[in-house]
């Protein structure tokens, strides 16, 4: 069985998708030509509005959805031809909470490991359950767990066969802040062990917090893929808010070049600029302010969030 052999292409991308199309039976085009490469050890966040095609894309990679055309490689293996090797490398936490209600936590996680053809290894399962704070629930029937715990059981199932690539389809939907933070920490810990993580989320701060690279998908097409930091820089707007000693009525014409705005009845002056536009020099502007006898007593500066960038991208 050559397709079950250890990975020969260690340097291959974790995921390589080329010209992927998916049209569902009802004629709906969910994916319209996706090309995407994800390197090993990356944390990649897939963002996009409801119905953009995130789940369809993930399911196509995992073998749950049959692509209409195109190619997918997982750790170098074609997921249609060498499906055993490709699927063995993947762990999937689906968007929907679907569990076998009457099974115990321990059994359901062991079952997942068996499905993937791995020999029994109680020590590995014990570690996974402990890492996810599920150890004291291991003999509990899943139906008796809370929603957040069920989600963690699904993560434990996905990790049970020690995958190299982990897909998390909205892992933190319906999870409280504390648990979300602890899940982020675990994802980072996984990355330390060399696991590639691909996640979708509607919480932009999650992508901002976690991801190395971000892909934005809309209507079945990747609108962009970019390093998170580069994206923030390119698209990121910064704002400086000057709280004035004395409120002003109008912005003096001498300042018109800076695109300033007044707020709070003239008590605040807001300067919005793009980090990559070198033309603006704040010290010049300060000189003009001074010349017009406008005196800030406080200056606040902030970056736009990924959410604002995202809305701008998809909305446009």
């Amino acid at each position: 069985m050559p397709d079950f052999m250890p990975d020969p292409a260690v340097n291959a991308n974790a995921i390589t998708i080329s010209a992927l199309y998916k049209t569902y039976d009802n004629g709906f085009k969910a994916l319209a030509g996706i090309d995407l490469e994800i390197k090993r050890g990356e944390i990649f966040a897939l963002l996009g509005p409801n119905g953009a095609g995130k789940t369809t894309l993930i399911n196509a990679v995992c073998g749950i959805v049959q692509p209409s055309s195109g190619h997918i490689r997982v750790c170098g293996y074609d997921n249609a031809v060498q499906y055993r090797a490709a699927r063995s490398a993947i762990g999937l936490v689906p968007q929907e909470l679907t569990t076998d209600a009457f099974e115990s936590v321990w059994n359901t996680v062991s079952f997942s490991r068996g499905l993937f053809g791995k020999p029994k290894n109680p020590a590995t399962i014990e570690k996974i359950l402990k890492d996810l704070s599920l150890w004291d629930k291991k003999d509990e029937q899943i139906r008796k767990l809370s929603g957040g715990m069920k989600r963690r059981v699904m993560i434990a199932k996905a990790l049970s066969h020690e995958p190299q690539v982990l897909f998390l389809d909205e892992p933190t939907a319906g999870v409280d802040v504390e648990l979300r933070k602890s899940m982020w920490a675990q994802v980072r810990a996984l990355r330390e062990t060399g696991v590639t993580v691909i996640l979708t989320t509607h919480y932009i701060e999650e992508a901002e917090e976690m991801a190395d690279r971000i892909g934005v998908i809309n209507k079945g097409q990747l609108v962009l893929t970019e390093e998170k930091n580069a994206l923030m820089q390119k698209m990121g707007k910064r704002q400086m808010v000057f709280t004035l000693r004395d409120a002003i009525q109008a912005i003096p014409p001498a300042l018109s070049a800076y695109g300033l705005a007044l707020a709070e009845n003239g008590a605040k002056l807001i300067y919005t600029y793009n980090t990559h536009q070198a033309s603006h020099d704040v010290s010049d502007m300060m000189d003009v302010l001074k010349a017009n006898n406008i005196r800030p007593k406080e200056i606040d500066s902030r970056s736009s969030s990924l959410e604002e960038i995202f809305i701008e991208l998809v909305g446009a």
Binding site: Y83, R84, I90, E96
Partner: peptide, 14 residues
């Protein structure tokens, strides 16, 4: 019906 079939389909099983 419940959706747990996802795991069977994503496993390396013919």
């Amino acid at each position: 019906f419940t959706g747990t079939i996802y795991e069977i389909l994503s496993a390396p099983l013919s």
